[in-house]
């Protein structure tokens, strides 16, 4: 799980172009939206694409995103349980 969290942090930095940030700057328990990283709805779309492209996970229900994208750790747990690649 630790490896997946680290990998996910790197992917988030790359996909969302968070210039100047390193994986160490992202608290795996901090909220991704609002406080914490302060991401917005377009970032949510990018994260949905990331999950589908890199882990083969298609979100069927958009409302699921609210729970899944709570933090990097929650996201990693979801990926671990549902990944197809």
């Amino acid at each position: 799980m630790e490896n997946l969290i680290e990998e996910l942090k790197k992917e988030i930095i790359e996909v969302l172009n968070l210039e100047g940030m390193t994986p160490a700057d992202i608290d795996e328990n901090a909220p991704l939206f609002g406080e914490g990283l302060g991401l917005d709805s377009i970032d949510a779309l990018e994260l949905i694409v990331l999950m589908e492209k890199n882990y083969g996970i298609k979100l069927q229900n958009a409302n699921e995103g609210k729970e899944i994208f709570k933090s990097v750790k929650v996201m990693a747990e979801y990926i671990n349980a549902h990944r197809t690649k």
């Binding site: 172009n17 779309l45 990018e46 694409v49």
Partner: peptide, 13 residues
């Protein structure tokens, strides 16, 4: 690269 799937919304916009 993605075979017309998983397209990045930011680049599109």
């Amino acid at each position: 690269d993605n075979d017309e799937e998983c397209l990045p919304p930011t680049s599109f916009m």
